[in-house]
């Protein structure tokens, strides 16, 4: 296996926010979901990968190459989709394609036209006349038309209706059948990832909380529910966050076996959703 994205001790400070020493790796052929609350550092990380902003320290390697030293080569092999439309709104779909395509070494008009037909995109319409979903589909068509090996998507599903979102997810899972292709997908709509992600990287307040296979998370984490009397300092240290109600409590643990042993049958331990995990981490010991 070879790493497609390799980030080591990446640092970036802004006024009032900093990315602290983040590290993670995405192997070739997988989909990684990059989750975290708004303002956690998802877009900052993606901008650093794309060299839109400058890192303070650390290392970013894409396909094993430094992302700045080999910037052009790396970007030739990346397909990107962002949360907003950054295309020239005054141009038509075809015109915009004509401006972009010569920059890519492996651009294929055939592939592009195939997706345009598949997505029923009007070729001669100006981009500003397209709906949000259409604009997103255009961005996806561009990202898919130059034989990219890595797809970087920054909140591609935000603001899209469930039908288009599900279409996008279908495309991604279809893409990944080619084992040379990988996807790095940031989102706060975690239900999208339940369906397609192999790995989950969770970022909170500028730090990576975990980066591991999705199945591991669902296996180790547990949503514990039970009466208040069960809580003691012994079990409390296994809780990431706890919500105490008048009689009962609900808490998240990253060690469900241990908690099961301590609490016995007195408590119910459910599988948490990614949303639950995000929520408990973000709120910590405060009332969730």
């Amino acid at each position: 296996m070879s790493a497609v994205i390799e980030i080591k001790n990446l640092k970036k400070s802004f006024d009032g926010f900093s990315l602290n020493n983040i590290s993670f790796t995405l192997e070739k052929g997988y989909i990684m979901g990059f989750i975290g609350p708004n303002g956690a550092g998802k877009s900052t990380t993606i901008k650093l990968i794309m060299n839109l902003i400058k890192k303070d320290d650390g290392e970013i390697k894409i396909f094993g190459l430094d992302n700045i030293r080999y910037e052009k080569e790396v970007k030739n092999r990346i397909g990107f989709v962002y949360d907003e439309n950054y295309f020239y709104e005054e141009l038509t779909v075809t015109e915009m394609k004509n401006v972009i395509s010569p920059f890519y070494k492996k651009w294929s008009d055939n592939v592009f036209n195939k997706y345009i037909r598949e997505f029923s995109l009007p070729k001669d319409k100006k981009i500003k006349e397209l709906s949000k979903g259409m604009k997103m589909k255009f961005a996806i068509a561009v990202a898919l038309s130059h034989d990219a090996e890595l797809f970087i998507m920054d909140e591609p599903t935000s603001g899209l209706d469930p039908i288009i979102r599900s279409e996008l997810l279908d495309i991604l899972s279809y893409l990944i059948q080619d084992e040379n292709k990988s996807v790095f997908f940031s989102t706060h709509i975690t239900s999208d990832l339940d369906k397609i992600a192999d790995y989950i990287t969770f970022i909170n307040k500028g730090s990576i909380v975990f980066s591991c296979p999705k199945d591991d998370i669902l296996e180790n984490y547990g949503l514990v529910k039970g009466p208040k009397e069960l809580i003691n300092s012994d079990v409390r240290k296994h809780f990431i966050g706890i919500k105490e109600k008048q009689f009962g409590f609900e808490a998240l643990t990253d060690n469900r076996q241990q908690v099961r042993r301590i609490l016995g049958d007195g408590a119910i331990i459910d599988k948490p959703s990614l949303d639950d995990i995000m929520l408990y981490y973000a709120r910590g010991s405060q009332n969730v």
Partner: peptide, 8 residues
């Protein structure tokens, strides 16, 4: 943002 994400 667009131009700097392309291989330019």
């Amino acid at each position: 943002i667009l131009l700097n994400s392309l291989p330019i």
